[in-house]
Simulated assay, not measured.
Amino acid sequence: MSRTPDSKSEATRQRILNAASARLRTHGIEQTGLRELMEQAGLTRGGFYFHFPNKDALVTEAITQAAGETADAYVSLADEAPAGRQLQALIEYYLSPAHRDHPATGCLVASLASETGRAGKKQRTAFSSAIGVTLQRIAPLLPGESPGQRTLNAGLLLSSMSGVLNVARALPDARQSEALLAAAREFYIRSFCGE
């Protein structure tokens, strides 16, 4: 007899997904153990398997959730910016010390791209779909003569900014890190926003 999910069960499942979404962006796939994840969610490890068949299934869903959260955040930033400044607002946020210092709520690409490239097919497929969602949501903000060109430009911008963000996170000197972020902000705003 199979169990039907109730609202409490769904809420618990969502707690696990929320914790996984944050933990994956902070610690990566390999360093996200089930014990620590379930502790972060305030649950016991034994309850995990009631909600997910294995870690791979959780990672796949958490990647999708994290991408949606990221895309929603970018669209909100753009919506709140003055007309003509939407892309600039996105660049300024992405390459900010606040984004650098809070990977748990930050960009999935910056957190998982290199690791996902070495992951299994399901995780790579989920990551690829997640990037597609993000690019689809931000492409209208980018210059380009066609939707395809705007999507390509969005991919170029996101990929290169994620690299800068990773280096800024790795630098031990905060002043050096902030100088890199500031220089990158100026470069991308000039290159993509025409300023």
Score class of each variant (00 low, 15 high):
Ala66Met: 10
Glu80Ser: 15
Thr26Val: 04
Ala62His: 05
His99Leu: 10
Thr105Val: 09
Leu37Asp: 00
Gln88Tyr: 08
Leu77Val: 10
His99Asp: 13
Leu43Asp: 12
Gln31Glu: 07
Ala66Val: 08
Gly28Arg: 09
Phe48Val: 02
Glu69Thr: 12
Asp56Ser: 09
Gly84Glu: 11
Ile91Thr: 03
Tyr93Pro: 06
Met38Gln: 11
Leu34Cys: 04
Arg35Gln: 11
Leu95Gly: 00
Ser96Gln: 01
Thr60Asn: 00
Ala67Trp: 06
Lys55Thr: 02
Gln86Thr: 13
Thr60Gln: 02
Leu43Arg: 10
Ala98Gly: 07
Arg85Asn: 14
Ile91Ala: 04
Gly84Leu: 10
Tyr93Leu: 14
Lys55Asp: 06
Tyr49Leu: 03
Ala83Ser: 10
Glu80Val: 04
Gln65Glu: 12
Asp56Glu: 14
Tyr49Trp: 01
Phe52Val: 05
Phe48Trp: 02
Glu30Met: 05
Pro103Gly: 12
Ala73Tyr: 12
Asp101Asn: 15
Ala83Gln: 07
Ile29Cys: 00
Glu92Ile: 02
Gln65Phe: 11
Thr64Met: 01
Thr32Tyr: 03
Leu90Gln: 12
Leu34Phe: 02
Ala98Gln: 13
Tyr93Val: 09
Gly42Thr: 00
Arg85Pro: 10
Ile91Asp: 01
Ala66Gly: 14
Asp56Val: 07
Phe48Arg: 02
Thr26Ser: 14
Ala89Asp: 13
Thr44Gly: 10
Gly42Ile: 07
Asp101Trp: 15
Ser76Leu: 14
Thr26Phe: 02
Lys55Cys: 03
Glu80Thr: 12
Thr60Tyr: 03
Ala81Phe: 09
His102Gln: 15
Ala62Met: 05
Glu30Pro: 01
Tyr93Gln: 14
Ala83His: 11
Gly47Gln: 04
Ala78Val: 05
Glu36Pro: 13
Glu30Asn: 09
Thr26Gln: 13
Asn54Leu: 03
Arg35Asn: 07
Arg85Ser: 13
Arg35Lys: 11
Arg85Leu: 09
Leu58His: 08
Asp56Trp: 02
Ala71Tyr: 03
Ile29Phe: 04
Leu77Trp: 14
Thr60Pro: 00
Ser96Arg: 00
Tyr49Gly: 00
Ala71Cys: 08
Asp79Ala: 15
Gly68Tyr: 06
Phe48Ser: 08
Pro53Met: 04
Tyr93Trp: 15
Gly42Cys: 09
Val59Trp: 06
Tyr94Thr: 00
Ala41Cys: 13
Gly46Ser: 13
Thr64His: 05
Glu30Asp: 12
Thr105Gln: 08
Arg100His: 15
Pro82Phe: 06
Gly42Arg: 08
Gly46Thr: 06
Ala57Gly: 01
Pro103Asn: 11
Gly47Arg: 05
His27Ile: 06
Ile63Gln: 04
Pro82Leu: 02
Ser76Val: 09
His51Trp: 05
Thr70Leu: 11
Thr70Gln: 11
Gly68Asn: 13
Pro53Val: 03
Ser96Asn: 03
Thr64Asn: 08
Gly84Ser: 10
Thr26Tyr: 10
Thr64Asp: 12
Leu77Ile: 14
Asp56Lys: 08
Thr64Ile: 03
Leu77Lys: 13
Thr64Gln: 07
Glu36Lys: 13
Ile63Ala: 00
Leu95Phe: 03
Leu87Ile: 08
Tyr49Asp: 03
Ser96Phe: 05
Gln40Cys: 04
Leu34Gln: 05
Tyr94Met: 02
Thr70Glu: 15
Ser96Val: 05
Ala73Gln: 12
